[in-house]
Structures are given as structure tokens and as C-alpha cells.
Amino acid sequence: MSSASEPVIRAAGLTKVFRSPDKAPGLSGSLRHLVRPRHTNRAAVNSVDLTIGRGEAVAYVGANGAGKSTTVKLLAGILIPSSGTVRVAGVDPHRDRLVNARQIGVLFGQRSQLWWDLTVRDSLEVLRDLYGVSRTQFTERLDEFDEVLGLGKLLPVVARRLSLGQRMRADLAATFLHGPAIVYLDEPTIGLDIAAKDSVRMFLRQRVAAGTTILMTSHDLRDIEDVCRRLIIIDDGRIIFDGDLGRAKDAYARQRQLSVQVDAPVDLAALRAGLPEAQVEQGASTRELVVVFDRFAHRATEVLDALTRQVDVVDFRLQEPQIEDVVRRVYRGELLVLPPQGVDA
């Protein structure tokens, strides 16, 4: 278990199978399908076991179509599992939809929950009534959110006139308005510029610090590093990694980059021959080198040895393993059988 705190989300053997019609295009295809329907079953989420503790911030990562959004929708009670169970703070999110709805907040970055033709304030007021938030609490929360989200300027604007970044900030306020204990965020920074992303991340960090449990999917690695401590990777409907962000780096970030300054020009060909598995490139000048290597193929000292045999090393810097490296490879679909340590069980 990655968290010692009391579990608030528990999923066991969670599976969602979608049935899609095999339909030839066009009218004749539709008619044929009507007479003799054929379907293909596809498990978007396949026996997923998941336990998330209260107050945890979890990044849920996977390539497009890996099952991220489907998992979120199963946890939120939007979809019914084909098999398996979900409990969110003790309730079945689909069967006890109304109870569950009060304790969760959901944000789909691709789609706004604001009323298109209403001002942000009007939309938030409607949500206030739906969730039964008291007037004082409403004002307090808006003030609190205002600092990071800059809500004040957005409140009198009609939603359809907001820029994407403004829209997302207003949507975040809407998601957290009723003080949900658990929040699911599906791509909360999609399409935003850097400044807007920063304010979203800062806001989310604040919410986590205030004790909200967060599960978020993102394609942006900085979102994950800034907000989350735990990483779950899903591939083809199955969880292939679940653990601490740092451990994910150790386990998967095998690429190391060594930047070296030397006192004389180097014979690159000879160096490459000595380090067959590594990538040796000239840096900005002839006295700078960059060596990229797999830490399972070469050790760092091995690389340095090879260098010092030729020239004197003036300075060197070993770049920290990046979570980007892991996640980018996940998205490219090239992950890798697990190293010996294995997954958290």
C-alpha cells in the first residue's frame, strides 16, 4: 500500500467492457446491422484494483485509450462497472449516485460544466443551490479561490466569452465549490498556456494541502510532478505501475545524461568504441560532451573512466532522472517489462 492513511476509494476487479457495433459504413451497412447485429467487446478497464487513501494526490497516467477516463467515470458513478466493485467513502457511486455526488467533485478539462449563456457568478450560484452550500460558506470559498484563480475578474463574464484558461479556472471553482472530499480531474490543464497551467497547479496543490483527495489524469508531466506524490500507470485497461513517484523514476527512468567539460578536444570515434551502448555527442563547443546512456548498460563511473583515459575532465554533471522520461515512454507505448523490484502489491 502506498499510503498509510485510511482508504477512501477502493476498487476491486473493476472492469468495464464496451460493446461496439460492427457496422459497415453507409445506409446498406446500417440495414445489414439491423438485420444481423454483430458486436465487438472491448475491455476499456480490465480487473483494476485500486486503493486510495484520504488526502492522497494521485496521478493517473496512460496513453490515449488506455482506460484513464473510463476509470474516472467508473469511480465517479457515471458508468456502471461490467464487473468488480467500487466503494467511494463507503458508498457505491452508481447505486447511491445522489449520496456520492455530494462528496465528490469532477472536472473534465475537455468540457465545461458552466452554463454557456450565464455569467460565471450565475453558474456558481446555481451550483451553490444544487449542493445546498450556505451563503457565508459560498462567499468564503470564493474569496479563498480568488487568490490563486483570480476569480473576481471572471465572475461577471458570460461563460461563452471566456478564454480557455479563464474557463478552466472558473470550472475549477465550480468543481471545488461544495468542498468535496474527493475530486477527479480529467486533463485539467489541457490546451492551457504556461501561466494558466501554473495557476491551476498552484490551486490544486493548495487543495491537496487542505486535505482533499485528488485523482487526476494528465498528459502534462509537470502537472504530475507538481501536484501528485503517487503515480498509477494504466496500459490497455490494466494497471502496470502503482507507487511512489520517486520509485517510478528509479524503476523506469533508465536514461542518464552526463554533461562533461574537458581540457582538450576528444576523439569521438574512439570514445564511442569504448562505450558501445551509449550515445556520445559533441556539446556546444569542442570541449563539451554529452553522453546519454542506459544505467543498466553502463554505470556512470564506467563512462567517466572511459573519458579520463583520453582527456582530463574539468567538470561534469549527471542529470537527475526525469519522470518525463518514464511517462513519455508510457505514452509512446514502449513500456518495458518491469525491472526486478516488481510493482507494489
Binding site: K73, A76, G77, I78, R97, L98, A101, R102, I104, V106, F108, R111, Q113, L130, Y131
Partner: peptide, 13 residues
């Protein structure tokens, strides 16, 4: 369009 999603996460029928 999948727009029904938000309706399903609010505490109202």
C-alpha cells in the same frame, strides 16, 4: 456528445 456526464455527478435527479 457525452454531455450527460456532468448531470450524473450532481446531487439532483
Amino acid at each position: 456528445s457525452g454531455e450527460l456526464d456532468y448531470l450524473l455527478v450532481r446531487p439532483y435527479p
